[in-house]
Amino acid sequence: MSYSVTLTGPGPWGFRLQGGKDFNMPLTISRITPGSKAAQSQLSQGDLVVAIDGVNTDTMTHLEAQNKIKSASYNLSLTLQKS
Results as ranks from 00 to 15, higher is better:
S4E: 11
G19F: 01
T6Q: 08
A72W: 05
S77M: 15
I69E: 01
Q40Y: 08
T61Q: 04
S71V: 08
A72L: 10
M25C: 11
D22Y: 04
T59G: 12
G35W: 06
N56V: 12
T61L: 04
S44M: 11
P10E: 13
Q81N: 12
N67I: 09
S2T: 15
L78T: 01
L48H: 07
F23I: 12
G14K: 01
S44T: 14
G35H: 07
E64Y: 06
Q40V: 09
V5F: 03
G9P: 06
T28Q: 14
A65M: 05
Y3S: 05
Y3T: 06
T59P: 09
K82D: 09
Q66S: 11
T61A: 04
K37M: 08
I69Y: 03
K21H: 07
Q81I: 12
I29F: 03
D47V: 03
I32D: 01
Y3A: 04
K68M: 14
K82P: 15
D22T: 04
Q18K: 13
M1Y: 15
L48W: 11
P26E: 04
L63C: 14
G19V: 01
G9C: 06
Q81E: 14
K21T: 12
S44D: 08
I52G: 01
R31I: 07
P12A: 06
L17T: 11
A39T: 05
V50Y: 06
A39H: 10
T6M: 10
T6L: 10
N56M: 11
P26Q: 04
S44N: 08
T28I: 08
I32R: 00
L43R: 00
P12Q: 06
F23P: 05
S41K: 09
E64P: 00
N56H: 10
T33W: 15
A39D: 10
W13M: 06
G19H: 03
Y74A: 15
V5M: 03
Q40M: 13
H62F: 12
I52R: 00
V50M: 13
V5Q: 03
T6P: 02
G35A: 07
G46V: 00
L78M: 12
T61H: 05
T6E: 07
Q42I: 07
Q81Y: 07
G54D: 09
G9E: 03
L17W: 03
D58L: 09
S83G: 08
G11V: 05
Q18R: 11
A39W: 15
T79R: 13
L27Q: 02
S30E: 14
V55T: 14
L80S: 02
